[in-house]
Design a protein around this nucleic acid. Structure first.
Lengths: 272, 272
DNA sequence: GAGTGGTCTAGACCACCGG
DNA sequence: CGGTGGTCTAGACCACTCG
């Protein structure tokens, strides 16, 4: 035979095939590592390599001390980055959403037939880290306190994304609801607009990276799972000054991130 | 001590620290696996786990039979998704770029002080796969041939991204340069516009996933490295019909993908 | 030929949960 | 308590490069 695949990839491929063919269905537990090792006459380490490979495909989830399970194929939540309100200057500032935060998250989810929920935000205050200073356009040696609002967001009850919003303490003192560990009914963008900090534009950036330990725990990802997608948004006020930084960490495969330009058929944009 | 980290994470963390502190500099080879095993008094398997973890941070690269090397910190290429020309209808169709393809790739790279090069495209023709039919808005049972143009793109001589452009054979017969394994001087978008297929809008979607074997090879990623970012663009013509599909696979950490809305200070947009 | 990482063996012990 | 995957041992052999 010509250049046989390593055993661990053969095992991974065979399991993948069984999942695709439906022999292993969503929610099923895969054979245990020792069963697979016996069946394939390999050591358990080789099986562990195979399962590690499978986890990276995003089709299975390993829960320590329980086993490895086939994940259901869920319809992903579509996150559209374009902010229709922002693109239409005639809409009053009070009704601008800011895309992806608070009410906008629920509205988008419901339009797509999902139920969106979230925990109360955890508010913490601390000295700025270098990357935060850079995002706020401040010199690297500036001493400034940053307010972090961290929120866990769920779709149909399942962990979907983690959102961190950052503000300077200086701003938060003028907008004290930011310091409350409670929802801001109208959303950050509208609340700040009421106080005169209007978001006239924003810049989004993306990266993919392995999850941190707490993110892996929240999303139920064990070792060697998929990368998460990190989406940073820097919001600018009327003076072109960055006044809000939002970092959203998405669970892989549960979200579809999209952006459009020019004329795209409405049916495409609406179809989930 | 309280809940010590597993050894393999301790080792990874120590190496990471040495890289950050500069004890290990860009281009340096890390100690070999057996050296690390001896130094930490652990088995080589534990060291392999540690290096696997380190590779996921994107700071090192393992080259089989050579060793593990510290990667230089390169300034990433910024890919801006907004198409300024498309957003300005007064610009004639012939000069629209399409963002990220051919000339636009070189222009953007040079503006940021990089040198962009690419291989000649590899053209292949074959039956449509289901996801391609879906992207082109065709029924799943339709029999149609798809032309693939695959191009390897480099920044400063290093592998940067892989771009696959897809067209129906029907379209390619009306635009025969698409079937040539040569560059299209003016770019796909302009060439097709000349022939009456004007891109009036597009829809971008993102995902992060582990690299395929050939992608890992092209990017020089070995086992357990970072995820690649996949960017799909579906382009629509005047009739709202999708006529071009482009999939770009980006090397992680070498690219910064961005998008803006509303008014963002020009200095931010220009600053690479 | 020496040295490298990729693959693999044949286990071991542990913490944790309720299959 | 039994069974699970996470961590780890102490190696082995291989294909390949030339550090």
């Amino acid at each position: 035979m010509a250049d046989a695949l390593p055993k661990y990839l053969q095992i991974a491929k065979d399991l993948q095939r069984q999942i695709e063919e439906g022999t292993l269905k969503a929610g099923d537990r895969l054979p245990t590592e020792s069963e697979l090792a016996a069946r394939w006459k390999v050591s358990t380490s080789t099986v562990k390599d195979a399962l590690s490979e499978l986890r990276k495909s995003g089709r299975v989830q390993t829960r320590p001390r329980e086993g490895t399970f086939v994940l259901p194929r869920r319809r992903p939540l579509t996150i559209t980055l374009n902010d229709r309100e922002l693109d239409m200057p005639q809409v009053p500032a009070e009704s601008r959403m800011g895309g992806g935060e608070g009410r906008a998250f629920r509205q988008e989810a419901e339009r797509q037939g999902f139920q969106a929920t979230w925990d109360l935000p955890e508010v913490t205050v601390g000295p700025a880290e270098p990357w935060q200073l850079e995002a706020f356009g401040l010199p690297p040696d500036q001493r400034v306190q940053i307010v972090q609002r961290k929120q866990r967001r769920f779709i149909d009850g399942e962990p979907n994304s983690l959102q961190y919003s950052y503000f300077t303490l200086e701003l938060a003192l003028k907008a004290p609801l930011l310091l409350n560990g409670e929802d801001i009914e109208q959303g950050h963008v509208a609340y700040l607009a009421e106080l005169g900090f209007v978001q006239v534009g924003y810049l989004d950036e993306f990266d993919a990276r392995p999850p941190h330990r707490d993110e892996a725990e929240f999303f139920g990802l064990s070792r060697d799972s998929l990368a998460v997608i990190e989406h940073s948004r820097t919001a600018y006020d009327q003076d072109g000054k960055p006044f809000r930084l939002t970092v959203t960490v998405y669970r892989p495969r549960s979200n579809k991130i999209r952006f459009y330009a020019g004329k795209v058929p409405p049916s495409v944009l609406e179809g989930s």
